[in-house]
Simulated scan of single mutants.
Amino acid sequence: MQFIDLAAQQARIREKIDTRIAAVLDHGAYILGPEVDELEEKLAAFCGAKHAITCANGTDALQLALMALGVRTGDAVFVPSFTFAATAEVVPCMGATPVFVEVDPVSFNMDAGSLKRCITHAKEQGLTPKLVIPVDLFGLPADYDALTELAEAEGLKMIGDSAQGWGGTYRGRMTGTFGDLTTTSFFPAKPLGCYGDGGAMFTNDDDLAELLVSLRFHGKGDYKYNNVRIGMNSRLDTIQAAILLEKLAIYADELDARQRIADRYTDALQDVIDTPVVGNECRSIWAQYTLKTRDGQDREAIMERLKEAGIPSTVYYPMPLHMQKAYDRFPTDPEGLATSEAIAKQVFSLPMHPYLEPDAQEQVISALRDALG
């Protein structure tokens, strides 16, 4: 059994992908070709953003966003500790300081109360609060209303890190439309992934969009040999854009399939283990279906039993960022990050993709219930 079955998706659209790739080979514009423009238009239309600007990967998308918003030395950038390293990684690269914020024990997303404490703490440390980066973890949008209200009160900019959540909805709006900017990743394992690396940024701000187009192309001005600012090389390959166009065409259908699979898991497992909770005004894209063990349940033993039954499972993320060597010197919530530390020892994820057949899913469910005794 595959944890994520990319082959099943490819079989569905292989002929269309082959046609798209052949078109790129025929016209020969391998970097920022016409498919890139087409993809950017369709990405923006899908989520309701005014602008979509593609780039080479999701980490570059975050760094380009920080560059565009003027993050620099002395600034504090607030990030959750329970997430992938890329969210925090780009901050020291800009000379700024990441400040690690606690997450909610149910949604696993950034906690507004902790953010407020962290802002006060950053000021006490002599830092300038500049920016907050909520993460749409495991596909579930962050609590943007609460976080935006606090950010605006404190004069902070906001980047929504939707590497795992692009296409989810929060109170009638889709991710890609929150904050000053939203970023996402097209890493192959993402719900919308290419066959290599890729990323994108979304904004409703015309000036920010124009700036990002320049920054991703060495800071170019009106043409590529007129550099008007320091930028970087982070352009999307045309072949990857061609592949993403065909994947985007079926994306809404795949999100519906992910929802059906998540519902089936939850209905079958909520009585024996803590299943994900999605508020009535939200829709997750289920990048991962992540469970949390209860008191007395041994995660490692459960996962070993699943392995013996031929069922793959994995842990996102076994160690919060503030405990890792690269980040353990940076400021944190002064009340500690006990929730991040606890859930890192409790969570594990089950197979999740749009092509998980009911019979296969029943095998997962049966094996897990057996493992739980």
Rank of each mutant, 00 (worst) to 15 (best):
F3S: 14
I4G: 05
I13C: 02
I17D: 07
T19Q: 13
C47Y: 01
G48E: 04
L66C: 15
L66W: 03
T83W: 05
F84E: 13
A88F: 09
V90Q: 13
C93T: 04
V101C: 02
F108A: 09
K116L: 08
R117P: 00
K123H: 07
K130I: 00
D136M: 11
G139L: 12
G139K: 11
L140C: 05
A142V: 07
E154Q: 13
G168F: 03
T182A: 14
T184P: 11
K190Y: 07
P191I: 02
L192M: 14
Y195I: 02
K220G: 00
G221V: 07
I230F: 11
N233L: 10
A249W: 06
A257M: 05
R260H: 13
R264I: 06
A268G: 06
L269T: 13
Q270H: 15
P276G: 08
V277N: 06
G279T: 01
C282D: 03
R283A: 14
T290L: 07
T290H: 01
L291C: 13
Q297K: 12
Q297P: 15
D298Q: 12
R329I: 01
R329V: 10
A342V: 04
Q346D: 04
L356Q: 05
E357H: 10
E357F: 00
D359V: 07
E362K: 10
